[in-house]
Design a protein around this nucleic acid. Sequence first.
RNA 1: GCCCUCGUAGCUCAAUGGAUAGAGCGCUUGGCUUCGAACCAAGAGGUUGGGGGUUCGAUCCCCUCCGAGGGUACCA
Length: 691
Amino acid sequence: MASSVCFGLANDAVMAELERGGKLEGLSKKEAKQLAGSLVKDRVPALAEQIVGRLGNAGFASVEAANGYINIAFDSNRMAERLIGEVLERGPEYGNAPGIDELVMIEHSQPNTHKAFHVGHLRNSCLGVSLSHIMKAAGYRVQDANYIGDIGMHVIKCLWCYQNFHQGEEPADPIARGRWLGEIYAEADARLNYRKDVLDFLLLLSTEDQQFIAAIDRMLKYLWREGGAGDDVVGEDIAYLLGRVANAQPIKDELLYRQDVIPRFWPIVGEQLADAIDHPRILPPVEGAPEPTTTPEERVAVWRKLETHMQEWWVPSMTWRDDVKAMFQLWEERDPDFVNLWEETREWSLADFRRIFDELGASFDIWFFESQVEEPGKQIVRELLEREIAEVSDGLPVVKIDEKLGLKTETYRTLPILRSDGTTLYSTKDLALTRQKFEEHGVDRAIWVVDVRQALYFQQIFKILELMGFEQAGDAYHLPYEMVRLPEGVISSRKGNVPVYDDIRDAVVARAREIIEEKNPEMPLADKERVSWEVAIGSLKYAMLARDNNKMITFDLDEALSFDGHTAPYIQYAHARACRILEHAGVTVEDLAGSLDRFDLGAVASEELSLLQAIAALPDDVRQAAAEYRPLVIANYVFDLAKRFNDFYHACPVLQSEEPVRTARLALVAATRQALANGLGLLGIAAPTVM
RNA sequence: GCCCUCGUAGCUCAAUGGAUAGAGCGCUUGGCUUCGAACCAAGAGGUUGGGGGUUCGAUCCCCUCCGAGGGUACCA
């Protein structure tokens, strides 16, 4: 234990002396401080010495001054005896705080049905699961809530794509259907964005590819000769394209007379792009033109990707967005056939999610579904309109929050609470759900584990409820966390680079299995299966938790596959080693607890002291982690503890040492094992006894 | 424009007002006949983005500038 009070005392003493001596007269405040500052530095060590001299040992094992600090040491053996006694007695409860009569609901994991569960969802679930354990350890009563996005535009898009292009193609294996549905959604997204992608690409070419601009005139003349000569309508379209590209302006597809102009233009664009690579020409730089953001090779790659669907998609895609909107109306009318389809496919995704949550150790007391809060949400909108908190602006109900609060600077802005066609938004549903949490579930505090991009949104929701006079809005907290990225950039279904959870898990489990095969080939088969799973999932979880909430995580599969260093397996390994030592000794925890009245480590080694201090820190760290909603505190704790344990067993032989040290060290090992298991448990990570 | 977050060793990250700013990865060197080497030891590596302020004391709090990312009315 160290104390830094000397600095403050020295400062007071120096200032008092200076004043008494009249040395401060005529000096500005700043000069006085500087003078005092220079004297304080020299004074502190002497003062510390003085205090130590006066204090003597004062009942402590030792009291000494160092660098102006007073270091107080307890009798290590007595402290160790008490600490280890507490750990062994409380067992899995060690570290927990006394109960508090407060019910906290933690909403996390919110995946959307009809979409893939990916590495971004993984961070959310890991955070939610761990926070739930930590809050329980800190004494709160906790309810875990899930909130499934089972309706909304994404569902409609997916079902539209399924019904029009893939009906009857679903895999026979029921457990593969959720994932397959996710792929259908991705295709729906690609189809619905296809026109925009094509036109954006042409705009990109016309802004940064000098050769393309130079060739555009020639290309369009060729197009004219090939198919359009004598057709005035095509001629107009060609003139339009020429004008837009030459001036680097966006092309508007609705202004084209003939929808097949783009598909006919497309192969010529491809030839031109290929030609630009084969015969690069240096064109004079254009004044003020921005540096190209893409290489010719990248441009060809994009062209090829779009080319695969050009003939099939371009013309029909004209009406797709309207088709999707029409389908949304089927939902609004609760069209029986549509509802049947929705229920069936929804269940495919839910089956997938239940399996994944089971793998992740996420259990929920309550499952909320977006589809269930649409009606209560609409009711709240009506109420808000009646009470004139909301108003209709640009054809849809919104709440102008700043205006209602009388704020002059823009802070909460305006939130739409219903679409102009009467269909619900995320906000419609969250208003209802928030009220339900407090009123129907009687919680005292509600926490939302949702990514940071929705920070403003949640402030808006909570403020609107406050405007309604809903007092408990003050007990609603959004816990924001940063995104998961990939080494090559953001995760984006548009780019098709979404790492799906199942794939990552398979890779990591396989790697864990490989290492066990290598290190521990004689392990029984069932153990190999279980342990490789525990290590793999633990490793993934630790990577998600050992980073502060407000820091981006760059997910690198190669790193995830490495189990060395600052990882869960390092900590799990320390735990397994501790278990093995106890197993060799053939003693039970009860034996060791009973031996504590004769506890004697002899001369306590620095590694032992350091380990004891780490074990003792758990209750404080639990408090801090809960107060700050930061599992990172516990992730740091277990790593630090494992590290100190490694130091300990390399420096201090346990089984070979003489009594009474042997038994005392065994008790220390048992306490370490317990603290490691408890810490890992708070993170939702398994503590295998063998690896 | 306005608001939020981040900037620490080559890379990925800790440390939130106190002692000489710590780990991991990577690099160099050493340690398995020993309670399990998924480990340990040693070495190299820092003007904590720049500047100012508050404080006895600042990576941490405040101001400002630079750089990166995100949000900002009918996506969720």
